[in-house]
Design a protein around this nucleic acid. Structure first.
Lengths: 152, 152
DNA sequence: GCTTGACCTTCCCATTGTGGGAAGGTTTAT
DNA sequence: ATAAACCTTCCCACAATGGGAAGGTCAAGC
């Protein structure tokens, strides 16, 4: 099976298949006389494993570990579980971060009239800021529209 | 004020300040006779604005829009609000994605013994998968440990 | 057989935002 | 004067992905 078919069958783009080969996430496959890569069902199975791992947000390094465990008939499921739970923690940490940003910002937007006037608590916060490390401004919410404008 | 002081005062690394200048997010500042960049308080204020926007996850393009609005004394707060709310939607979308991954994975991990035996529902799912587009396997949860091992 | 289009190959470039580091000039403090 | 600490530019790297060019190959139709 050539790379196009393998791509279709696995859901991994041909570009990425070549890339995964180049970084040695997957082994080099055999070639036809003309130099075309030739994929077996087993190769495709591995690519699908990879696609699913990527869909779960695993990095290439983690996938490399998972692939090794997959092929290790003597693996301890504890090893797989550890990788998975570390990744869960990372995913939650990132999601948490995004949601904190989102909440801060939608709170600010909630206080913004969103009309044709320039006064805007979002801009004011960006300009005066919560706890700049210099901390010498501690502006409440002056809302003086352009009172802080960099007189440009 | 040289770039080191401006960096310290703004919380933006010197490297990033030069980068922001190179992509024209910020204007070129004046130079000393020796060619050192020289930052005014106004420049530092702008850098702090940028740092806060970045802390809220805004992209360089969005920051560029926000900076323009900041300097526009005739801005409509609606414009700021629109950018903010679009960004909130994006943040929520990403957070949602991460949480979906996290939930799928912690569900799988919850069913994994995590002991020294090889049998592992996480590996099984990666190997057999929910709804591979070929859809010819639809494996429930055979859990045959190495029944799908690529006989390597 | 020959042409055409769809495929394959490798190689290079771009992305986003950030940092590392080298080679060389400057400032500052001892 | 000398050394440390800074600045300058330039290049490289990351992670994961795609775009595209230049050239070879395969399959189908005439």
């Amino acid at each position: 099976m050539n790379i196009g078919k393998a791509s279709e069958a696995s859901g991994v783009s041909a570009k990425m298949i070549r890339y995964y080969e180049s970084i040695e996430l997957i082994p080099e496959v055999s070639r036809t006389a003309a130099g075309y890569r030739d994929y077996s069902d087993k190769d495709v199975h591995r690519l699908r494993f990879i696609r699913r791992a990527r869909d779960l947000g695993f990095s290439v390094d983690q996938m490399s570990e998972l692939l090794a465990l997959w092929q290790d008939r003597d693996r301890a499921s504890a090893d797989v579980k550890r990788i998975a739970l570390e990744h869960v923690a990372e995913l939650e940490r990132k999601a948490q971060q995004l949601m904190e940003m989102s909440e801060t910002l939608s709170h600010l937007a909630g206080n913004c009239q969103g009309d044709s006037r320039p006064d805007c608590p979002i801009i004011n916060e960006l300009s005066e800021g919560w706890g700049s490390e210099k901390g010498d401004e501690t502006a409440g919410s002056g809302c003086g529209s352009n009172k802080d404008k960099p007189e440009d």
